[in-house]
């Protein structure tokens, strides 16, 4: 199905709002589960939006901007997965893979802004020296505004202008290629989880990783709440132990210091 001009504009407006939310990391409406649902509403196909949202959210679960690294862009991934599934009639699982280049594109645009916005800092220093709060506010508005407009323009071009080209490209793809994209979408979360583990996994935490994996593999349940509850219990056990250790350490060192004081007084 084709995307109308009105839908293209509506998608661009939505992208501006969720894009600024991603820039500020405020309400988390930039996550694919929300972006896909909103895209589905705009396109008049809510079930498709929900399906795409669930799949894309999980594929992007580990791809977070933690520690100041910029992940493949979740806004473009969400919009384009839904849009491609809608215009080409492909399975959303296949569409995730096809949407990925758009996600990379936006990631690199944001990285470019991260570098070039450094140039504004000289101005900010000058405003600080002059105690000029109004100009400082204007500067922050300008940078955020540039990002906002970019989201609107990029999404309009990718979703509306490029849709025919996208459609003929997808139609020309052989079965093994689309099937390849589909299974790649299913493996993709592994990269994200690998990234999470890179930050979190130290030797002492390996047992918890194994426990979580084994529980989810052998306990038939529709979501991860049981795993989270067990994780919470393990965390509480460690918390209590560590706190007791700390108290004992403080108590013994206090006793030690006390002895030292006595000696000092003796001298």
């Amino acid at each position: 199905m084709a995307i109308t001009l009105a839908q293209g504009i509506a998608l661009a407006v939505m992208a501006i709002i969720v894009g600024v939310d991603f820039w500020l990391e405020a309400l988390f409406i930039f996550r694919p589960i929300i972006v896909c649902t909103l895209t589905g509403i705009i396109l008049g196909n809510v079930p498709l939006g929900l399906m795409a949202g669930g799949l894309t959210e999980l594929a992007f679960a580990g791809l977070t901007p933690a520690g100041g690294t910029q992940p493949p862009n979740p806004v473009l991934a969400g919009v384009m997965t839904t849009v491609i599934a809608y215009t080409t009639g492909k399975d959303p699982a296949t569409a995730i893979g096809l949407a990925l280049p758009f996600s990379f594109l936006m990631q690199y645009i944001i990285l470019f802004y991260y570098s070039s916005f450094s140039l504004f800092m000289k101005k900010a220093d000058k405003y600080a020296e002059e105690a000029d709060g109004k100009s400082l506010a204007r500067l922050n508005m300008l940078t955020t505004g540039i990002v906002a407009i970019t989201y609107g323009v990029v999404v309009f071009l990718c979703a509306y202008v490029a849709q025919d080209a996208m459609q003929s490209l997808v139609k020309a793809m052989p079965e093994w290629l689309t099937h390849g994209f589909e299974i790649a979408g299913g493996i993709l979360p592994a990269v994200g989880f690998g990234m999470l583990l890179k930050v979190m996994l130290k030797g002492e935490f390996v047992p918890y990783l194994i426990l979580g994996f084994v529980i989810a593999s052998f306990v038939p349940f529709s979501n991860l709440l049981p795993v989270a509850v067990v994780g919470m219990a393990l965390a509480l056990i460690v918390f209590n132990n560590e706190r007791n250790n700390k108290k004992m350490a403080v108590a013994s060192s206090a006793a030690f210091e006390g002895e030292g004081d006595d000696e000092n007084e003796g001298i």
């Binding site: 979360p189 583990l197 979190m200 994780g231 393990l234």
Partner: peptide, 11 residues
């Protein structure tokens, strides 16, 4: 600890 346990489940 909580996060790593959940990631095990997510995998």
């Amino acid at each position: 600890i909580l996060g790593v346990t959940v990631i095990g489940g997510l995998i």
